[in-house]
Amino acid sequence: MPTSSLVMFEEEFKQITAVIDRLLKEANAKVVFLVDKDGQLIAASGETGDMDTTSLASLTAGNIAATGGLAKLIGEKEFSILFHEGEKDNLHISIVGQRVILVVIFDQRSSLGLVRLRVKKANDELNAILQKLLQRVEKKPAAQENLLAEITDSDIDKLFH
């Protein structure tokens, strides 16, 4: 396998959430979320109440994957920032450390300039956390092995009842 599974512990989750909470405030954004490139939601902050974050995560990843494919076709490595402008809400999408996607949803209470500025800072912080996490994953945590080793066949069968 080219990549091992992404394992995130409580501490890392807290650090990540702290960064995106702060980004939300400083950028005057409505929602900020972080998605794995495979489309899995890692963390979200803001008015996510009636938002379908699972679908958002999957479509964001699809979007990044498609534009990444386009980039390669014209000889670029990737487009690290995407911006979609709507009538009310706008979407700012950027890639963090080549592995995860940071999405900021904002309206007229903020501006593209402000969002860009704040995203840049958050990007560096998130990247540092992620690099540490990935290093740890490569070393394989004992805790993960314990958890998964305990799964039995009957646990799996029960899932479908």
């Binding site: 992404l6 394992v7 995130m8 512990f9 989750f13 899995q40 890692i42 805790a143 958890l147």
Partner: peptide
Amino acid sequence: MSFINYSSREINCKI
């Protein structure tokens, strides 16, 4: 690539 989140106690897999 599966994603295991100990904080939200979730295992995510892609099929």
